[in-house]
Structures are given as structure tokens and as C-alpha cells.
Design a protein around this nucleic acid. Sequence first.
DNA 1: TTGAAAGCGATACCAT
DNA 2: ATGGTATCGCTTTCAA
Lengths: 327, 327
Amino acid sequence: MTYHIFMDESHITIKEIAKEAHVGIGTVSRALNNSPNISDVTKAKIQAVIKAHNYKPNAPAAHLARKTISARYVGLIVRNFRIRFFYEVFESIHAALKKHHIRLLILEYSENAGTFFSQIMELNLSGLIFFTMRPNRKDTAAMRSRNIPFILIDSSLPHTYSITNDNYYGGKLAAEYLLRNGSQAPCYVHSKKSNQLDTLRYTGFRDGLKTALHTDGGTYAAALDENAGYKTGKKILSDRTADGVFCFSDEIAIGVLKAVRDAGSELPVIGYDGTRDTEGWGLSTISQNPYIIGKKAAAHIAALIAGSTPEQTAPLVLTPVLIDRGS
Amino acid sequence: MTYHIFMDESHITIKEIAKEAHVGIGTVSRALNNSPNISDVTKAKIQAVIKAHNYKPNAPAAHLARKTISARYVGLIVRNFRIRFFYEVFESIHAALKKHHIRLLILEYSENAGTFFSQIMELNLSGLIFFTMRPNRKDTAAMRSRNIPFILIDSSLPHTYSITNDNYYGGKLAAEYLLRNGSQAPCYVHSKKSNQLDTLRYTGFRDGLKTALHTDGGTYAAALDENAGYKTGKKILSDRTADGVFCFSDEIAIGVLKAVRDAGSELPVIGYDGTRDTEGWGLSTISQNPYIIGKKAAAHIAALIAGSTPEQTAPLVLTPVLIDRGS
DNA sequence: TTGAAAGCGATACCAT
DNA sequence: ATGGTATCGCTTTCAA
């Protein structure tokens, strides 16, 4: 379902305004742009007509005529705004892009309304960064054919620069952490929507346990928020089969930890991402470094926009680290 | 310092591409848009030329010719991305605007490079929401003359709809909280950059203390982040003049609380905003409701964009509430 | 399948 | 200070 808004629905142009105000179109343009070369009375007259018709100038037409742009924009695309780590990466990319005089804006990806790309084309972006997701075939084709550069964070696609972290290794770190804390049968809480990251983390986790594992703590699945984590935590506690919990994300882990503490339990819990608020909760986590991600992403997209070939074109894989807070 | 990028620097158009590829401009357009009415060979030929010249189609020109837009965008503007509460309001507005089929994007305000508005005009936004700041005179004039609606959150301007919370009352609540917890000489930590919100909170705080206050706990000032809060907390502890702390924001308060806990002190601390991560820290705070803010902001801007007159045009003042976590 | 020509709605220049 | 005109770069229609 696309919401195409046709311009001709009550579509007034500068011409109509000029006629109605009994002036030339050049004069209307001057009123629009607060030009000094216009008398206050004519300006007021024109503005009245503008208000009356709720006229809005057509920005694309203005830009075409102006032939100069005053800023470059890169869009950072995410599928779900509730992922906290996203904001930390966002801040980091934003700061790094600033040095290149490129501005960043964030957008949510939505496939339902036609192609995403056709929607954002209107924004006239110079480049795109996809976070934790990849564009579909159509959007990829559209970007390629229009020569709009894009890169990926935490996902991958052939012939596309990407920055990921070693999720398999991160899963292993989590396993080691729980084992060190005495778990004999740790469980894993999947992301409800399965994805490649989740699979890798889980595989690493399983492999990390393999040598030492006695019993299977099982798996659960939760949506990517605290409430879902809390409910899952309650379930884990009542099931009594697991003696340690590794969660796909910090949001889930915080929810689980809350449930654990509410029950007065000491069940070890560890999350993934290393968002800021894990500190307050005293939650151990497998941490990614948003600063490095942002720096690398900014440098790469800036190079692509400039038309130069970046030195490194192979995907970049960063190594996550354990933050042990004793949770 | 404006970074005007003139289009004519290595400015290739569809015409050049057409000539070089020995085809008509219509055919190039078909290649750009993945049209079915083009043979694979000519498409490939054209794409080669496009790659060779790093040609990028001019989006404004395309839109002008297309005469149809597929999505409306509203920009949410903030001066400083490090304010955590901003993200919660953002999520809330985003969700509410979705119902109106309006998409939200976030942007940082920067006055340094000419007028902000001239920069974002290229994005062709249907409306703007300013968070915790107000546009300057020039930008205001530009938006008004181009008939682009805008509203404010947590600031105010004549003839402009705004949503604020009762900062004076919030300050009073904080005073009462500290007094209830035995403070006799509480201090206030200002925002380093003074602003209207800060003044109101402080005034309410002072008035709340007035009847009961014995000694003046003094005031401090900190930048809007945890580190600054931490340093300020250390200073408060070493000064030993205050026996309770009210902070302008949760970020500062979290920093202060960390310092207090690191020192093994029991000094009462309270923040402002009610960001999610205050829960993890067990920090008491004066809480605003991002859900309500988002709902109201979305409804109002949507009405303005639609050209209808919203029912309520007077500024909306919400009442903050105390969240007591015993900090 | 392809080429040529007619707009799209502003801006800016040149007269007046 | 104001009006008219050429023009911006693309999409789209109409012929071929």
C-alpha cells in the first residue's frame, strides 16, 4: 500500500499566487525568499494570498533552479528504533561525519509502502548506512542504478562494504563467562525474529559450552525489549532447568536480570552490545565499540561519496570484548 | 562558514551521458529507473558510462518532472544528540506519526553554517519539531514565509504551538523530595549552558525550599553528560556544604550518583526527565511522559500539515511527576 | 526498443 | 521595485 500524494490535489503554484495577487511571478519569488528588493506592502499582499490558499512552494523546483546545494546528507537506516545500541552508533557516526562536513539523519526502514528507496529519494541523500539489516533486492538495484553509495553495519551483502563484529566469538565469550560463574546448564534467549546475528551468537555460545556442558539449559525467544525479557526471565526461573542466561541483546538481558533480582535469585545473566544503561544495572555484557564503528563507517561512506576508492573494501570484522560486572 | 557545493563542479547531466553512450536522453532515463522498455545491451552500455563518470542523477530535477511524492517527512530537530530523553521522545513521536502516514527523521541543529533552514530545505520536509531549543529569527522567518509548519517541545515562542512541562513545579517536587529525605542544605546543579528550563527548575526548587531551608547548599554547573556529573559529584562531596543534590538532568544526576556511591556516601540525589536508564541506577527523578509528548506533538503537526486548524492552539503544559527510587 | 520534444515549478537575469 | 523570459535536469508522451 503506497500513499502516493499527487501534487495536483489542490496543487497551487507560484503562477496562481502571482495572478491572484496581481503581481509577476518574480515578485512572488522575492516574497518567498525574504528578498530586500520588494516593498513591504506587496510582500504583505502576497503573503496574504499564500496564507489564504495554504500554498507551499515546491522545494524540488526551487533546488533545480538554484543549482547549488548547501549540505550533504547521509541517511542512517534502522528497522526498529527500539534498539538502544543504535543510538550509540548513531552518535558516533554523527560525530565522525561532522568532520567531513556531512550531516547525518536517521530513518526507519519500511518495506510495506512500495520500495523504500523511492520514498527516500525525495530526501536527496548522498549516501546510506544500513544498521542491523540489509536493503531488499529492489532497493539495492535502485541504489546501484542511481549510483548512490551505501554500506552496512551488522549485516552483509556481496560487493558491499560492511562493518560487523565477530558474533561467533562473542557467543563464545558469553559461554566462557557463564561457565566461570559456575553455570552447568546455561540457556540462550534468542531474538524473536531470527536473524543472522542471532544464529552466529548462538553457534558460538554452543561451541563455547561444548567441552564443558553437562546439561542443556534450553533456549527461549523474546522480542527486543525489556518487557519481553522480563517475561522470559520469569519463565526461565519457573522452569528451573537453566542455571545461567545469555541473551541476544542488552534490552532482553536487562529484563531477565530484573526478573531474577525480583525473585531474589542469583542466576548469572549476560547480555550483548554493551549499551550504556547496562552499567547502571551492573549487567555483564559482550560489548561492541560504537566509537570504532562510527569512525570506520563515516570514513568509508565519505570516501564513496567523494568518488574515491577507499583503501579497505573488504568487510571489516571487529572483535567484541567482555565487560564483567558480576551479574 | 557555509559549505556551498556548486553543482557545476564536475557536473555531468543526463545529456552528457546520452551523448557519450550514443543514445537519447529518454533511454538514459529508462536505464536509471530500471524500466522494462529497454534492452539489456543498451542498459549495460549506459551503465558503463555512468560508472565511468561517477554520474549521479539530480534528485530535485527528477521529482519536479515526476510530479508525485510518495511520502511526507517531518524533521525532529535537537541541538545536542547526547540528551538521552530526546531519544525517548523521538520514539514516541515516531510511533504516533506513523498513524498519520508521516515519517520522522532526526537532525541536529547547527547555526554556524548559514541559516539552518536553507540547509534542510533540500530535504523537502513537510513540518518541523524543535526539541529543547528554538529556531533563530532568520530560520523562523524563512519557515513562516515558506509556510512550513513547526512546533516546539520544551521551549516557547510567540504564535507557536509548544509542549512543555511545568518546570517550576518539577523543581518544587525535587525540593520536597530532598527535604523529606532529611536534607537541610540541598544544592542544585545547573546546566552549564543556561537556558529557560534551567532557570524555571531552579526557581521552583528555591521556592520549594524556602519555608524549610536552614542553610544554602549552593549551586554548581555541569555539562549535560555523565562525566561532567561525576566530576561535579566529587566536588560536592569534597566541599561538604550540601547534604542533598538536585540536578538539571538525569545524565548529570547519574554522574553525581556514581561519585556519591564510589565515595560510600548516602547523599540524596535526584534528577530530571525520567529517562529509562535512571531505573537501572535506582535514581529518583522528576519524570516527564514521553508518550504524551509524542502523541500531542504528532497530532498537532499532522493537523498543521493537513492545513486544518488544530483544536488546541494554546501552549500545552504537562505536569511532571516524582519517581521515588530512594536515591 | 528508441529518440525528440514538451513540460514540471521554481530562480534569476534583464529590462523597465 | 517589478514583470517577463530563459533555464535548471529530469520524466514522459508521442512517433517512428
